[in-house]
Simulated assay, not measured.
Amino acid sequence: MEALLEVKDLYANIGQFSILQGVSLSVQKNAINVILGRNGAGKSTTLRTIMGYVRPLKGTIQLDSTNLSNLTTYQIARKGIGYMPEDANIFANLTVEENLLISMPNREARTAKRLSDMRDLFPDLTVAWNRQAGTLSGGQRQMMALASVLVSQPNLVLIDEPSKGLSPLLVERIGDALVQLRTETTIVLVEQNFFLAKRTGDYVTVLDDGQTVYTGDMQALASSEDLLQHYLGLQLQTKDGMGL
């Protein structure tokens, strides 16, 4: 597989706190690359540092042949990287359609096609298409926020906890959309819901205390009770139905 993004030995602080203390990951093209770890491991900060919201103290962030480490957030976005933060920002007084339109930097003949693609990818948005975003359910907001990132067709998408606060049914629908997207873009997914991560992920990086402690194939991690217990404190499914 060919890497689209390479992060090597990344260090970053937030205020006086050392958050990242040696994060490395290799993001493979046209695949879902999952970042896992316990709370406070540095997952969200890794995405924010890649996007330039947090300035790295040390390390490199390489997108193909471009070093992103010293670029501003808007310069990084112009390199074709989309970002959906954990608490997705929406324009509450605009409709779903208007939120998506405002997310498209250039209006082209393809605009109607891209909007139609988003409705196909997230059918739940169709019934709310002309409603103000502030009236949407939590699941609809997450889908709209993700659609707002995808509508501009980024080459790389950073997604932070899309399943947060959603019902199992909506988590399943988010997973369906992510699997479909694998064919047209590259995804880095931070996710606490291991079932969603296991179902959608191709590759995984595990962080602990701001450091990379494991990288590899998602299914290799998901099928190893020793690795799950050691890195994530999880257990495989047992005969009595307990565990994963």
Rank of each mutant, 00 (worst) to 15 (best):
M1W: 04
E6C: 11
K8F: 04
G15H: 07
G15I: 08
Q16L: 12
S18E: 14
I19H: 10
G22E: 09
S26R: 12
I35C: 10
L36W: 02
N39S: 02
G40D: 10
G42W: 06
T45R: 06
L47D: 04
R48Y: 06
Y53P: 01
V54W: 05
L57G: 10
T66A: 06
T73V: 14
Y74K: 01
R78L: 06
P85L: 03
P85S: 08
A88W: 00
N89C: 01
I90Q: 05
A92G: 03
E98M: 06
I102P: 00
N106S: 13
K113V: 14
K113H: 14
S116Q: 15
R119E: 07
P123W: 05
D124W: 00
T126L: 12
V127R: 13
Q132W: 12
Q132S: 13
L136F: 06
G139W: 00
G139E: 04
M143T: 03
A145S: 15
A147H: 11
V151L: 07
V157R: 09
G165P: 08
S167Y: 01
L169Q: 12
R173K: 15
R173C: 01
R173Y: 03
D176N: 14
A177F: 03
R182L: 11
I187R: 10
V188T: 01
F194I: 02
G201H: 08
T205F: 11
L207Q: 11
T212M: 09
D217T: 07
D217K: 03
M218S: 06
S223Y: 05
Y231D: 07
L234N: 06
L234Y: 11
Q237M: 12
K239N: 08
M242W: 03
L244Y: 13
